[in-house]
Simulated assay, not measured.
Amino acid sequence: MSEVVQSVILDDANNSLIILDQTLLPGEKRFIELKTEKDVWDAIYELKVRGAPAIGITAAYAIYLFVKKYDVQSYEQLYEHFKKTKEYLASSRPTAVNLFWALNRMEERLKKESKNTISVIKTALKEEADNIYKEDEKVCKSIGEYALSLLKPGFGLLTHCNPGTIATARYGTALAPIYLGNERGYDFKVFAGETRPLLQGARLTTWELKQAGVDVTLICDNMASIVMKEGKIQAVLVGCDRVAANGDTANKIGTSSVAILAKYYNIPFYVCAPISTIDLDCKSGEDIKIEIRPDKEITTKWYTKPMVPEGVKAYNPAFDVTDEELITAIITEKGIVYPPFSENLKKIL
């Protein structure tokens, strides 16, 4: 990769978290400082930091920083404050399971250290958050290697949303095989859907792939069919915010449409998902809560003047669920999972 952009940085000395504000890309590359619980909640909700792994990393470092500042004398007092902060941060994004996974992992470490001094507990939480970050980089590279084994040099690849390096610790999930292939001369031709409602494919995926020297072409979301029909796409690679026990996956709105088209044109549809996104307590996609975003994101946000008549209702779900029957394989850091997912997801875990 010609440039690695670290989107989440712990500034331990100043008790703050530094994040790349992804809402300003590609026009401006600005890092902002988060110091309060509300700062972090707003950054996650407003998608200043986004991507399931990056959200998990942010939550882990944030809750460490807030625990670090607690002036308490006992474990019981510390745990009471921790629980309140955890519940508050967890309310920022209901769909991304990595948020809850990271917070739960931090809580388990807290409980494990309950017999130690407050100082030792705080150090242990810093170590756990660091581990979450380091592990994610390894996870993404491993996903990339497995995914790359399914691809051939010169392939045309379609991706959706931004499953890239700025959404993770490094490499990304669905973009990881593209970066690795780029390093090895695979000469992929990547087509990125613009991805409504926040244009994360147009603003973010094309931005980071261009910086890395990858051949990338932007298409509107409703152009996926024609590029498939014209034979320009040999595989689809998408990320994921949650995998249900039966293999249904939740990802940015429009992913399900791409999967339906891929099925029709007999193009493999691969979901790149860290183990941390697999939620066996969630039986199917029907159990995944879909976040509804503000109307303005599709009516006014990207325009000088409103693009719809005043008073017209808007429906703006941020995610949709891709049915397991549309998915060729789910690629994890531990290997490639093929149907039947209800059986094989359990095995990979």
Rank of each mutant, 00 (worst) to 15 (best):
V321K: 03
T300I: 03
V321E: 06
Y315L: 14
D320W: 05
P294V: 11
V312R: 05
V321H: 02
I298T: 12
G311H: 02
V312E: 04
T304R: 14
E297A: 06
Y315A: 09
E291Y: 00
D295S: 15
K301Y: 12
A318R: 05
A329R: 03
T322F: 11
N316E: 12
P309C: 00
D323R: 08
K305T: 12
R293G: 08
T299V: 03
K305D: 07
E333Q: 15
A329H: 06
E324Y: 06
D320S: 05
D295W: 04
T328K: 02
I292K: 14
E333R: 11
G311I: 00
P309N: 03
E297L: 07
E324K: 09
V337G: 08
K334M: 14
V321S: 10
T332F: 15
N316K: 04
L326V: 07
E291P: 01
E297Q: 01
E291N: 09
E325F: 09
Y303P: 01
W302Q: 10
Y303K: 10
T300E: 08
E310R: 00
E310S: 01
K313H: 11
A318G: 15
K296M: 11
R293I: 12
T299N: 05
T304C: 05
Y303V: 00
I331K: 09
W302L: 03
P309M: 00
T300K: 08
V321F: 01
D323W: 02
K313D: 10
D295N: 14
I330R: 12
W302I: 02
I327F: 11
V337T: 10
A314D: 05
W302Y: 15
R293Q: 10
E325Q: 10
G311P: 09
E324P: 00
F319V: 13
V321D: 02
Y315R: 14
K313E: 15
I298S: 04
I292E: 15
I331A: 14
D323T: 06
K313A: 15
V321C: 08
T332Q: 13
T332P: 07
A318F: 01
T304G: 11
G335V: 13
P317C: 05
A318I: 00
Y303H: 12
P309H: 00
E291W: 02
L326Q: 05
T328R: 09
A314N: 06
D320R: 06
P306R: 02
E310K: 03
T322D: 07
P317L: 07
P306N: 10
K313S: 10
